[in-house]
Protein backbone atom coordinates (compact mmCIF):
# COMPACT_ATOMS: atom_id res chain seq x y z
CA UNK A 1 0.00 0.00 0.00
CA UNK A 2 1.24 3.47 -0.87
CA UNK A 3 2.34 5.69 1.99
CA UNK A 4 0.25 8.80 2.47
CA UNK A 5 1.80 12.24 2.81
CA UNK A 6 -0.19 15.36 3.62
CA UNK A 7 1.28 18.76 2.62
CA UNK A 8 -0.12 21.70 4.60
CA UNK A 9 1.20 24.92 3.09
CA UNK A 10 -0.59 28.18 2.25
CA UNK A 11 1.74 29.20 -0.62
CA UNK A 12 0.38 27.43 -3.69
CA UNK A 13 3.65 27.50 -5.62
CA UNK A 14 5.64 25.96 -2.82
CA UNK A 15 2.95 23.34 -2.22
CA UNK A 16 3.18 22.34 -5.89
CA UNK A 17 6.98 22.23 -5.77
CA UNK A 18 6.93 19.97 -2.71
CA UNK A 19 4.31 17.74 -4.34
CA UNK A 20 6.40 17.51 -7.51
CA UNK A 21 9.50 16.61 -5.48
CA UNK A 22 7.81 13.88 -3.49
CA UNK A 23 6.00 12.40 -6.47
CA UNK A 24 9.33 10.93 -7.56
CA UNK A 25 8.68 8.36 -4.86
CA UNK A 26 5.90 5.79 -4.56
CA UNK A 27 3.66 7.85 -2.30
CA UNK A 28 0.12 9.21 -2.25
CA UNK A 29 0.10 12.98 -1.85
CA UNK A 30 -2.67 15.10 -0.36
CA UNK A 31 -2.73 18.88 0.04
CA UNK A 32 -4.26 21.42 2.40
CA UNK A 33 -3.86 25.19 2.20
CA UNK A 34 -4.40 26.14 5.83
CA UNK A 35 -4.10 24.77 9.33
CA UNK A 36 -7.78 24.01 9.89
CA UNK A 37 -8.09 22.11 6.61
CA UNK A 38 -4.83 20.31 7.34
CA UNK A 39 -6.08 19.16 10.73
CA UNK A 40 -9.37 17.99 9.24
CA UNK A 41 -7.62 16.06 6.45
CA UNK A 42 -5.14 14.54 8.89
CA UNK A 43 -8.09 13.16 10.88
CA UNK A 44 -9.78 11.78 7.77
CA UNK A 45 -6.76 10.38 5.93
CA UNK A 46 -4.53 9.37 8.84
CA UNK A 47 -1.40 10.02 6.77
CA UNK A 48 1.99 8.51 7.52
CA UNK A 49 3.60 11.91 7.45
CA UNK A 50 2.51 15.54 7.49
CA UNK A 51 4.67 18.30 5.99
CA UNK A 52 3.51 21.37 7.85
CA UNK A 53 4.25 25.01 7.16
CA UNK A 54 4.65 26.95 10.42
CA UNK A 55 3.49 30.41 9.40
CA UNK A 56 0.03 30.25 7.89
CA UNK A 57 -2.75 32.83 8.00
CA UNK A 58 -5.84 31.93 9.98
CA UNK A 59 -6.76 30.59 13.35
CA UNK A 60 -4.25 27.70 13.45
CA UNK A 61 -0.56 28.02 12.67
CA UNK A 62 1.76 25.07 12.09
CA UNK A 63 2.82 24.75 15.73
CA UNK A 64 -0.80 24.51 16.85
CA UNK A 65 -1.70 21.96 14.17
CA UNK A 66 1.33 19.87 15.12
CA UNK A 67 0.40 20.01 18.80
CA UNK A 68 -3.15 18.87 18.05
CA UNK A 69 -2.03 16.04 15.76
CA UNK A 70 0.38 14.78 18.40
CA UNK A 71 -2.30 15.02 21.11
CA UNK A 72 -4.86 13.04 19.08
CA UNK A 73 -4.70 9.32 19.97
CA UNK A 74 -6.23 8.40 16.57
CA UNK A 75 -3.20 9.97 14.90
CA UNK A 76 -0.61 8.14 16.96
CA UNK A 77 2.49 7.42 14.89
CA UNK A 78 1.87 10.19 12.36
CA UNK A 79 5.19 11.90 11.69
CA UNK A 80 5.26 15.68 11.42
CA UNK A 81 7.91 17.72 9.62
CA UNK A 82 7.72 21.47 10.14
CA UNK A 83 8.66 23.65 7.16
CA UNK A 84 9.57 27.18 8.09
CA UNK A 85 11.55 30.30 7.34
CA UNK A 86 11.95 30.72 11.11
CA UNK A 87 15.34 29.23 11.88
CA UNK A 88 16.09 30.73 15.28
CA UNK A 89 17.02 28.43 18.16
CA UNK A 90 13.83 29.40 20.02
CA UNK A 91 11.77 28.39 17.00
CA UNK A 92 13.49 24.99 16.82
CA UNK A 93 12.85 24.54 20.53
CA UNK A 94 9.21 25.47 20.09
CA UNK A 95 9.00 22.90 17.28
CA UNK A 96 10.35 20.24 19.65
CA UNK A 97 7.99 21.35 22.39
CA UNK A 98 4.94 20.77 20.19
CA UNK A 99 6.24 17.31 19.29
CA UNK A 100 7.45 17.69 15.71
CA UNK A 101 9.69 14.92 14.37
CA UNK A 102 11.82 17.14 12.15
CA UNK A 103 12.28 20.78 11.22
CA UNK A 104 13.31 21.97 7.74
CA UNK A 105 14.32 25.62 7.44
CA UNK A 106 13.43 27.43 4.20
CA UNK A 107 15.04 27.64 1.74
CA UNK A 108 15.41 23.85 1.96
CA UNK A 109 16.80 21.62 -0.74
CA UNK A 110 14.54 19.07 -2.47
CA UNK A 111 17.25 16.49 -1.74
CA UNK A 112 17.11 17.33 1.95
CA UNK A 113 13.32 17.07 1.86
CA UNK A 114 13.30 13.66 0.19
CA UNK A 115 15.97 12.30 2.53
CA UNK A 116 14.10 13.47 5.61
CA UNK A 117 10.76 12.10 4.40
CA UNK A 118 12.28 8.73 3.49
CA UNK A 119 14.09 8.53 6.81
CA UNK A 120 10.93 9.16 8.82
CA UNK A 121 8.68 6.95 6.74
CA UNK A 122 11.19 4.09 6.88
CA UNK A 123 11.51 4.48 10.63
CA UNK A 124 7.75 4.27 11.09
CA UNK A 125 7.39 1.18 8.84
Amino acid sequence: MKRKILIVEDQTDLRKLVRMTLEFGDVEIHEAENGAEGLRLAGELRPDLVLLDVMMPGALDGYQVCQRIKADPRLKGVKVVLLTARGQQTDLEHGQKVGSDAYLVKPFSPLELIDKVEELITASA
Binding site: L14, A85, K106, P107, F108, P110
Partner: peptide, 9 residues
Protein backbone atom coordinates in the same frame (compact mmCIF):
# COMPACT_ATOMS: atom_id res chain seq x y z
CA UNK B 1 11.97 33.88 0.85
CA UNK B 2 10.00 32.64 -2.11
CA UNK B 3 12.82 33.51 -4.48
CA UNK B 4 15.46 31.99 -2.25
CA UNK B 5 13.39 28.80 -2.14
CA UNK B 6 13.00 28.83 -5.94
CA UNK B 7 16.78 29.39 -6.32
CA UNK B 8 17.52 26.48 -4.01
CA UNK B 9 15.17 24.23 -5.94
Amino acid sequence: HELQQAQRY
